[in-house]
Design a protein around this nucleic acid. Sequence first.
DNA 1: GAATGGTCCCATAGGC
DNA 2: GCCTATGGGACCATTC
Lengths: 100, 100, 100, 100
Amino acid sequence: MSDDAAANQAANDETPTAGASESLGVTGERLRSFIERIERLEEEKQALADDIKEVFAEAKATGFDVKTIRKIIRMRKQDIDQRKEEEALLETYLAAIGMV
Amino acid sequence: MSDDAAANQAANDETPTAGASESLGVTGERLRSFIERIERLEEEKQALADDIKEVFAEAKATGFDVKTIRKIIRMRKQDIDQRKEEEALLETYLAAIGMV
Amino acid sequence: MSDDAAANQAANDETPTAGASESLGVTGERLRSFIERIERLEEEKQALADDIKEVFAEAKATGFDVKTIRKIIRMRKQDIDQRKEEEALLETYLAAIGMV
Amino acid sequence: MSDDAAANQAANDETPTAGASESLGVTGERLRSFIERIERLEEEKQALADDIKEVFAEAKATGFDVKTIRKIIRMRKQDIDQRKEEEALLETYLAAIGMV
DNA sequence: GAATGGTCCCATAGGC
DNA sequence: GCCTATGGGACCATTC
């Protein structure tokens, strides 16, 4: 493993005045905080995924072909990506010739 | 592919005099609306994915091992999923013995 | 992608007396061998899938509810997976605190 | 998990005096048997999937492009399927004209 | 034919 | 910098 001590739950007492449990508690708190933040975000992300699914369902109910819609969206995304790339390239060129 | 509604990408008729073209325009509008709603949601979803990545990066910078954190999160999720499934199974059993 | 090129990376001459076409032949042999091995394995895999289907059918004929059986099997699998993951996590922790 | 409860909607009686509860025990046995047969088969199926993965890995290590190999296999499968279909159609025609 | 679950493929991310 | 591993998305088969 790369980092020193992964989830340092075992470990060394860093605050001499405190008990071992204290510093452990702090580390644990931070870890828990990270985990919960991530879980919260993933929950929201999942909610959005569900929303998207719903919209597809609605489109389907309206009589549209979902697969085709997906294809269109993919194409549009490609276009956007490409456009962004082109703009980025343009920026690079402009920067290269000192036009900021 | 189901050709009928599917390919209605044309959609750009905005002639006020209506007729078949008018309904196509309407269909096109609806299609565009669906697509844009989805794109908007996917954008937000992507933003959340980026946020999550950031939190992982922050945790890593703090000295935690990302891989381990991922594992913990996965396990917690498994717990939740399993609990849900157990409840679903119970429902199934109840239904099977006619207890609705 | 250039499909033709794809398979040619192996192309080193193993028979010093042969020309390029010979080494290509060897490469082709190896490729064919891989493909046939995979196809054979997939055939067996498919046969097993069919067997499983049969067992489900038999269970159904016996009066069991297939859906419920599926759910039970899924849950049992989850249990096993989770146990494995817990062990893996333990390993990770042990490694993290230097207990190999 | 409470395996015994399974699809035995009533359940856990193993009283030696038999009666309805005895037949339930028998039912439980059958259910368990089905489940274990399926699990065994899925295990083998998974083993084959792993084997296939290994072969792909070996092919890759040899210098072949996995994606392309997949494509070839897919094409060959299509050919086989098509051939089967043609044969089936031929059978149908032969049957239709009374040539068994 | 609609919904669901399972499988496969790809693209990205992290490790060596 | 490659290469493996993991997660997400698409497709497909099956069930109700």
